Amino acid sequence: MDHPAPGTLRTVTGGLDTASVRGPVLPHEHLALDLDHRGDGAAVLAPDRHAAAVTAELTALREEFGLSLVVELTCRGMGRDVAALGRISRAAGVAVVAATGWYYEPFHPDEVTGLDVEALTAVLVREIEDGIGPDGVRPGVIGEVGSHGDTPAPAEAKVLRAAARAALAGGLSVATHAQLGHGGPAQLDLLTAELLPAHRVCVGHQDLLDDPGVHRELAARGAYVAFDTVGKSSYQSDRTRLRLLLALIEAGHADRALLSCDISRHGYLTEEGGQGYGHLFRGFLPELRAAGADDDLIDLLTRRNPLRFLTGASAEEN
Protein backbone atom coordinates (compact mmCIF):
# COMPACT_ATOMS: atom_id res chain seq x y z
CA MET A 1 0.00 0.00 0.00
CA ASP A 2 1.27 3.46 -0.80
CA HIS A 3 1.74 5.73 2.22
CA PRO A 4 1.15 9.49 2.14
CA ALA A 5 4.21 11.27 0.80
CA PRO A 6 6.41 12.75 3.54
CA GLY A 7 5.01 16.07 4.67
CA THR A 8 1.69 15.48 2.89
CA LEU A 9 -1.77 15.08 4.40
CA ARG A 10 -4.77 13.44 2.79
CA THR A 11 -7.74 15.81 2.99
CA VAL A 12 -11.28 15.58 1.66
CA THR A 13 -10.26 17.79 -1.26
CA GLY A 14 -6.93 16.10 -2.04
CA GLY A 15 -3.32 16.13 -0.88
CA LEU A 16 -2.06 18.99 1.27
CA ASP A 17 1.58 19.92 1.83
CA THR A 18 2.08 20.56 5.56
CA ALA A 19 4.41 23.45 4.66
CA SER A 20 1.34 25.30 3.40
CA VAL A 21 -0.41 25.00 6.78
CA ARG A 22 0.59 28.32 8.26
CA GLY A 23 -2.23 28.76 10.75
CA PRO A 24 -3.68 26.74 13.62
CA VAL A 25 -5.17 23.25 13.41
CA LEU A 26 -8.17 21.84 15.27
CA PRO A 27 -7.13 18.18 15.68
CA HIS A 28 -10.34 16.72 17.16
CA GLU A 29 -13.63 18.04 15.81
CA HIS A 30 -16.87 16.90 14.20
CA LEU A 31 -18.56 18.70 11.33
CA ALA A 32 -21.21 16.09 10.48
CA LEU A 33 -22.26 13.22 12.73
CA ASP A 34 -25.20 11.33 14.20
CA LEU A 35 -24.85 9.77 17.66
CA ASP A 36 -28.58 9.96 18.39
CA HIS A 37 -29.33 6.70 20.16
CA ARG A 38 -31.95 8.27 22.43
CA GLY A 39 -34.15 9.65 19.69
CA ASP A 40 -33.98 13.22 21.00
CA GLY A 41 -31.93 14.57 18.11
CA ALA A 42 -29.43 16.25 20.44
CA ALA A 43 -26.19 14.45 19.58
CA VAL A 44 -26.41 15.36 15.91
CA LEU A 45 -24.72 17.64 13.40
CA ALA A 46 -26.94 16.99 10.39
CA PRO A 47 -25.53 18.40 7.14
CA ASP A 48 -28.97 19.34 5.80
CA ARG A 49 -29.73 21.42 8.91
CA HIS A 50 -26.38 22.50 10.37
CA ALA A 51 -23.83 22.69 7.55
CA ALA A 52 -24.40 26.40 6.96
CA ALA A 53 -23.74 27.21 10.62
CA VAL A 54 -20.65 24.98 10.70
CA THR A 55 -19.34 26.57 7.51
CA ALA A 56 -19.93 30.07 8.84
CA GLU A 57 -17.99 29.31 12.04
CA LEU A 58 -15.01 27.83 10.18
CA THR A 59 -14.97 30.73 7.72
CA ALA A 60 -14.92 33.23 10.56
CA LEU A 61 -12.08 31.38 12.28
CA ARG A 62 -10.05 31.30 9.07
CA GLU A 63 -10.54 35.04 8.64
CA GLU A 64 -9.90 36.00 12.28
CA PHE A 65 -7.30 33.46 13.43
CA GLY A 66 -5.99 31.90 10.23
CA LEU A 67 -7.55 28.48 10.90
CA SER A 68 -5.96 26.21 8.31
CA LEU A 69 -7.01 22.64 9.04
CA VAL A 70 -9.69 20.64 10.86
CA VAL A 71 -9.24 16.95 11.69
CA GLU A 72 -12.75 15.49 11.57
CA LEU A 73 -12.89 12.34 13.70
CA THR A 74 -16.34 11.05 12.81
CA CYS A 75 -15.78 7.41 11.84
CA ARG A 76 -17.79 4.32 10.98
CA GLY A 77 -21.05 4.06 12.92
CA MET A 78 -21.01 7.74 13.89
CA GLY A 79 -22.95 9.15 10.92
CA ARG A 80 -19.85 9.97 8.86
CA ASP A 81 -20.59 12.00 5.70
CA VAL A 82 -17.46 12.70 3.67
CA ALA A 83 -19.42 14.38 0.87
CA ALA A 84 -20.69 16.95 3.37
CA LEU A 85 -17.14 17.43 4.67
CA GLY A 86 -16.00 18.24 1.15
CA ARG A 87 -18.74 20.82 0.68
CA ILE A 88 -18.00 22.45 4.05
CA SER A 89 -14.25 22.48 3.39
CA ARG A 90 -14.59 24.14 -0.01
CA ALA A 91 -17.14 26.70 1.18
CA ALA A 92 -15.16 27.66 4.30
CA GLY A 93 -11.73 27.62 2.65
CA VAL A 94 -10.42 25.36 5.45
CA ALA A 95 -8.80 21.99 4.76
CA VAL A 96 -10.47 18.98 6.40
CA VAL A 97 -9.01 15.54 7.14
CA ALA A 98 -11.53 12.66 7.22
CA ALA A 99 -11.21 9.57 9.40
CA THR A 100 -11.91 5.86 9.52
CA GLY A 101 -12.18 3.42 12.41
CA TRP A 102 -14.78 2.57 15.06
CA TYR A 103 -15.92 4.54 18.10
CA TYR A 104 -16.40 2.93 21.53
CA GLU A 105 -18.61 -0.10 22.11
CA PRO A 106 -22.09 1.43 22.62
CA PHE A 107 -21.81 2.86 19.11
CA HIS A 108 -20.28 -0.13 17.32
CA PRO A 109 -22.18 -1.11 14.16
CA ASP A 110 -23.08 -4.78 13.68
CA GLU A 111 -20.00 -5.40 11.54
CA VAL A 112 -17.76 -5.21 14.60
CA THR A 113 -19.51 -8.15 16.24
CA GLY A 114 -19.21 -10.38 13.21
CA LEU A 115 -15.60 -9.74 12.21
CA ASP A 116 -12.29 -10.68 13.81
CA VAL A 117 -9.23 -8.43 14.03
CA GLU A 118 -7.92 -9.47 10.63
CA ALA A 119 -11.22 -8.82 8.89
CA LEU A 120 -11.68 -5.48 10.65
CA THR A 121 -8.18 -4.48 9.61
CA ALA A 122 -9.06 -5.34 6.02
CA VAL A 123 -12.13 -3.06 6.18
CA LEU A 124 -9.97 -0.12 7.27
CA VAL A 125 -7.23 -0.88 4.76
CA ARG A 126 -9.78 -0.89 1.93
CA GLU A 127 -10.95 2.58 2.95
CA ILE A 128 -7.38 3.83 3.21
CA GLU A 129 -6.51 2.38 -0.20
CA ASP A 130 -9.72 2.92 -2.16
CA GLY A 131 -11.36 5.79 -0.30
CA ILE A 132 -14.73 6.39 1.33
CA GLY A 133 -17.93 6.80 -0.65
CA PRO A 134 -18.43 7.19 -4.40
CA ASP A 135 -15.87 9.99 -4.63
CA GLY A 136 -13.18 7.82 -3.08
CA VAL A 137 -12.20 10.29 -0.33
CA ARG A 138 -9.18 8.78 1.40
CA PRO A 139 -8.96 9.12 5.18
CA GLY A 140 -5.96 10.90 6.61
CA VAL A 141 -6.23 9.54 10.14
CA ILE A 142 -7.74 6.61 12.04
CA GLY A 143 -10.07 7.65 14.82
CA GLU A 144 -11.68 8.33 17.04
CA VAL A 145 -11.16 4.72 18.05
CA GLY A 146 -12.76 4.28 21.42
CA SER A 147 -12.95 2.50 24.72
CA HIS A 148 -14.55 3.13 28.09
CA GLY A 149 -13.32 2.24 31.54
CA ASP A 150 -9.75 1.58 32.61
CA THR A 151 -9.50 -1.49 30.38
CA PRO A 152 -11.05 -1.76 26.90
CA ALA A 153 -13.88 -4.24 26.51
CA PRO A 154 -13.11 -7.20 24.22
CA ALA A 155 -14.84 -5.60 21.23
CA GLU A 156 -12.98 -2.34 21.87
CA ALA A 157 -9.65 -4.15 22.15
CA LYS A 158 -10.42 -5.78 18.82
CA VAL A 159 -11.00 -2.48 17.00
CA LEU A 160 -7.97 -0.86 18.65
CA ARG A 161 -5.77 -3.70 17.41
CA ALA A 162 -7.28 -3.41 13.93
CA ALA A 163 -6.69 0.33 13.99
CA ALA A 164 -3.02 -0.17 14.83
CA ARG A 165 -2.52 -2.72 12.06
CA ALA A 166 -4.27 -0.56 9.48
CA ALA A 167 -2.29 2.50 10.60
CA LEU A 168 0.95 0.62 10.05
CA ALA A 169 -0.21 -0.61 6.65
CA GLY A 170 -1.39 2.81 5.51
CA GLY A 171 1.13 5.13 7.13
CA LEU A 172 -1.49 6.90 9.26
CA SER A 173 -1.82 7.87 12.91
CA VAL A 174 -4.48 6.82 15.43
CA ALA A 175 -6.57 9.18 17.57
CA THR A 176 -8.45 7.55 20.43
CA HIS A 177 -11.59 8.22 22.41
CA ALA A 178 -10.90 7.53 26.09
CA GLN A 179 -14.31 7.88 27.69
CA LEU A 180 -14.11 10.63 30.33
CA GLY A 181 -10.32 10.37 30.03
CA HIS A 182 -10.06 6.84 31.46
CA GLY A 183 -8.10 3.95 29.98
CA GLY A 184 -5.44 5.85 28.07
CA PRO A 185 -2.46 3.75 29.23
CA ALA A 186 -4.32 0.54 28.37
CA GLN A 187 -5.17 1.90 24.93
CA LEU A 188 -1.54 2.77 24.34
CA ASP A 189 -0.47 -0.69 25.52
CA LEU A 190 -2.75 -2.34 22.96
CA LEU A 191 -1.73 -0.10 20.09
CA THR A 192 2.00 -0.35 20.71
CA ALA A 193 1.74 -4.14 21.23
CA GLU A 194 0.76 -4.21 17.54
CA LEU A 195 4.06 -2.37 16.85
CA LEU A 196 2.47 1.01 16.15
CA PRO A 197 4.99 3.62 17.40
CA ALA A 198 3.71 5.66 20.32
CA HIS A 199 4.33 8.93 18.48
CA ARG A 200 1.64 7.87 16.00
CA VAL A 201 -0.95 7.74 18.81
CA CYS A 202 -2.99 10.55 20.31
CA VAL A 203 -4.86 9.56 23.47
CA GLY A 204 -8.12 11.46 23.60
CA HIS A 205 -10.03 13.44 26.23
CA GLN A 206 -7.24 13.62 28.76
CA ASP A 207 -8.47 17.03 29.90
CA LEU A 208 -11.38 15.13 31.50
CA LEU A 209 -9.00 13.13 33.70
CA ASP A 210 -7.60 15.11 36.63
CA ASP A 211 -4.47 12.99 36.89
CA PRO A 212 -1.26 14.73 35.80
CA GLY A 213 0.69 11.54 36.48
CA VAL A 214 -1.17 9.69 33.74
CA HIS A 215 -0.60 12.59 31.35
CA ARG A 216 3.13 12.56 32.08
CA GLU A 217 3.25 8.78 31.62
CA LEU A 218 1.59 8.92 28.21
CA ALA A 219 3.79 11.78 27.03
CA ALA A 220 6.98 10.16 28.36
CA ARG A 221 6.13 7.04 26.38
CA GLY A 222 5.94 9.21 23.27
CA ALA A 223 2.19 9.52 22.72
CA TYR A 224 0.29 12.75 22.16
CA VAL A 225 -2.01 13.83 24.99
CA ALA A 226 -5.26 15.43 23.86
CA PHE A 227 -6.83 18.29 25.77
CA ASP A 228 -9.61 18.19 23.24
CA THR A 229 -12.88 19.05 24.98
CA VAL A 230 -11.96 22.69 25.66
CA GLY A 231 -15.06 24.68 26.56
CA LYS A 232 -17.24 21.71 27.53
CA SER A 233 -17.91 23.08 30.99
CA SER A 234 -20.52 20.44 31.86
CA TYR A 235 -17.71 17.87 31.83
CA GLN A 236 -14.79 19.90 33.16
CA SER A 237 -13.97 23.54 33.83
CA ASP A 238 -11.46 25.29 31.62
CA ARG A 239 -9.71 26.35 34.82
CA THR A 240 -8.95 22.69 35.53
CA ARG A 241 -7.97 22.08 31.90
CA LEU A 242 -5.52 24.96 32.08
CA ARG A 243 -4.01 23.65 35.30
CA LEU A 244 -3.55 20.19 33.79
CA LEU A 245 -2.06 21.56 30.58
CA LEU A 246 0.37 23.79 32.45
CA ALA A 247 1.45 20.83 34.57
CA LEU A 248 2.23 18.82 31.43
CA ILE A 249 4.13 21.74 29.90
CA GLU A 250 6.10 22.32 33.11
CA ALA A 251 7.01 18.63 33.13
CA GLY A 252 8.76 19.16 29.80
CA HIS A 253 6.12 17.71 27.49
CA ALA A 254 4.82 20.75 25.60
CA ASP A 255 5.66 18.92 22.37
CA ARG A 256 3.10 16.21 23.18
CA ALA A 257 -0.06 18.24 23.88
CA LEU A 258 -2.91 18.78 21.42
CA LEU A 259 -5.80 21.23 21.87
CA SER A 260 -9.30 21.13 20.39
CA CYS A 261 -12.99 21.58 21.25
CA ASP A 262 -14.69 18.33 20.10
CA ILE A 263 -17.88 20.01 18.88
CA SER A 264 -20.18 17.00 18.72
CA ARG A 265 -23.77 18.26 18.75
CA HIS A 266 -25.69 21.18 17.32
CA GLY A 267 -26.22 22.72 20.76
CA TYR A 268 -22.49 23.49 20.90
CA LEU A 269 -22.69 25.71 17.78
CA THR A 270 -22.54 29.44 18.37
CA GLU A 271 -25.73 29.86 16.33
CA GLU A 272 -27.53 27.86 19.02
CA GLY A 273 -25.86 29.56 21.97
CA GLY A 274 -22.96 27.18 22.37
CA GLN A 275 -19.24 27.81 22.70
CA GLY A 276 -18.49 26.89 19.09
CA TYR A 277 -15.32 25.75 17.35
CA GLY A 278 -13.73 29.10 18.16
CA HIS A 279 -13.79 28.79 21.95
CA LEU A 280 -10.21 27.53 21.91
CA PHE A 281 -9.04 30.77 20.28
CA ARG A 282 -11.40 33.23 21.92
CA GLY A 283 -11.62 31.77 25.42
CA PHE A 284 -8.90 29.28 26.30
CA LEU A 285 -5.77 30.54 24.55
CA PRO A 286 -6.07 34.04 26.05
CA GLU A 287 -6.05 32.38 29.49
CA LEU A 288 -3.01 30.32 28.48
CA ARG A 289 -1.25 33.49 27.33
CA ALA A 290 -2.10 35.18 30.62
CA ALA A 291 -0.42 32.24 32.35
CA GLY A 292 2.79 32.97 30.48
CA ALA A 293 2.57 31.22 27.09
CA ASP A 294 4.36 33.06 24.28
CA ASP A 295 3.67 32.98 20.54
CA ASP A 296 6.09 30.11 19.92
CA LEU A 297 4.41 27.89 22.52
CA ILE A 298 0.97 28.70 21.12
CA ASP A 299 2.18 27.81 17.62
CA LEU A 300 3.67 24.56 18.94
CA LEU A 301 0.43 23.55 20.61
CA THR A 302 -1.95 24.59 17.86
CA ARG A 303 0.00 23.93 14.65
CA ARG A 304 3.30 22.10 14.88
CA ASN A 305 2.17 19.38 17.30
CA PRO A 306 -0.95 18.34 15.35
CA LEU A 307 0.98 18.31 12.08
CA ARG A 308 3.69 16.11 13.62
CA PHE A 309 1.03 13.79 15.01
CA LEU A 310 -0.67 13.41 11.63
CA THR A 311 2.51 12.84 9.65
CA GLY A 312 4.63 10.99 12.20
CA ALA A 313 7.35 13.63 11.87
CA SER A 314 9.91 14.34 14.56
CA ALA A 315 10.06 17.63 16.47
CA GLU A 316 12.96 18.74 14.25
CA GLU A 317 10.98 18.34 11.03
CA ASN A 318 8.45 21.17 11.47
Rank of each mutant, 00 (worst) to 15 (best):
V145K: 14
D36K: 11
D228M: 02
D34H: 13
R10F: 02
G136H: 10
H177N: 02
L120Y: 06
G278D: 06
G283Y: 00
T151C: 14
A56F: 09
S264W: 08
V201Y: 00
E271Y: 06
H253I: 09
L190H: 05
F284W: 06
A254I: 01
P197F: 03
E129C: 10
I298A: 11
L124P: 02
T302H: 07
D36E: 11
A53C: 05
V225A: 05
S314E: 14
P4L: 00
S237Y: 05
A52G: 14
S264F: 13
D2V: 11
L209W: 09
S264E: 13
I142Y: 07
I249Q: 01
T270L: 08
S173V: 04
A83T: 15
T100M: 06
V97E: 07
V12C: 09
D255S: 13
L269A: 01
P286K: 12
A60M: 09
A178I: 03
L9F: 00
V94Q: 06
E64H: 12
P27L: 04
D238H: 03
A84N: 01
M1K: 04
S173G: 02
L245M: 10
N305H: 13
V70M: 11
A167D: 12
V201C: 11
P139K: 10
F107M: 12
G140I: 10
L208P: 00
N305A: 06
T270N: 04
S234H: 14
H37M: 15
L69G: 02
L61Q: 00
I263T: 09
A19V: 08
E127L: 08
V174H: 08
L69N: 02
V125S: 13
A167S: 11
R200T: 08
L259I: 11
L168Q: 12
L258A: 07
L297P: 07
G252N: 03
D116A: 09
R303V: 08
G204R: 05
L16H: 10
V54I: 07
M1Q: 11
L180F: 15
R90G: 13
L45P: 08
G77D: 07
A219R: 13
A99E: 00
G171Y: 03
A169T: 10
D135P: 02
T11I: 03
L61W: 00
R126T: 15
R38F: 15
A293G: 10
A193G: 07
E271T: 14
G15K: 01
P4D: 00
Y224H: 06
D294P: 13
L269S: 02
L196E: 03
S68A: 15
